[in-house]
Design a protein around this nucleic acid. Sequence first.
DNA 1: ATGAGTGCAAATAGTTTGCAAGCTG
DNA 2: CAGCTTGCAAACTATTTGCACTCAT
Lengths: 138, 138
Amino acid sequence: MTSLIDEAIARLREKGLRITDQRKSILRALAEAEAPMSAEEAHAALVNEACDLVTAYRCLDQFEKAKIVELGVRENGTKVYCLGHGQGHHHHLTCRGCGKTERIDICMGKELNEIAAHFGFVELSHVMEAFGVCPKCK
Amino acid sequence: MTSLIDEAIARLREKGLRITDQRKSILRALAEAEAPMSAEEAHAALVNEACDLVTAYRCLDQFEKAKIVELGVRENGTKVYCLGHGQGHHHHLTCRGCGKTERIDICMGKELNEIAAHFGFVELSHVMEAFGVCPKCK
DNA sequence: ATGAGTGCAAATAGTTTGCAAGCTG
DNA sequence: CAGCTTGCAAACTATTTGCACTCAT
């Protein structure tokens, strides 16, 4: 349980990235939410305005390049980041009304890789987000 | 072959939307590309600046609401629209280098619906885009 | 000490909105 | 001819960049 953040910090270290208070704060926010959040949301969730919004963008970008978080995209195009994919890659189902997020454990990554291989594509990645209206909001 | 556009026009009519030259041009552009394209790309593809960029945005938005096109999102957050999903829902694999797009016919829509039903979500939709580097670009 | 990281201001990209004028049904 | 559509200008949102300063290593 404690490990999500520590794991992330360890990975930062591995990649030669520096451990700053701002980065720790952002990681904490992501860990507490355990749902994908945008840079703005992550920034808003920080206690005491722990860092500038721009820094949130930059850190999340770094995190993604270091494979510490995974990138997703909302229906409206905003980018969202999610911590905790270390072992279990998964996706999300988000309510258009209240934003509530459920984790869904299906992924067509394997099939995708086969097809991509067939076309000769490499460095595969995919984005997949599901949206709907939750029981409370309908 | 001829039908993609005609079909779309028919559906416009059904929905009580008007058939204008601008809309026809945009549909033509989408049909010729048969790959997802952004509003800006669709606009750029129009011969003779057939309509304003804003109109392209508005039309595509209408088309999507009328279920004439499907909405997707790129890795960077730009929205893309794709014609021709009338019967065969599918997804795409896009090259990060040259933008080349391959159609992929897998979709976890069914599994998704089951899970969503389990959570009580309705009005499901999903976005899924795959990215990689094609043989030519690597 | 040295270069990665940060904050602030300003620039961009993509998309949306307000309003008067134009065209479709 | 009524109202959906369009064009143009301007507003907006999400994100990126330039630059001087600061702090982790």
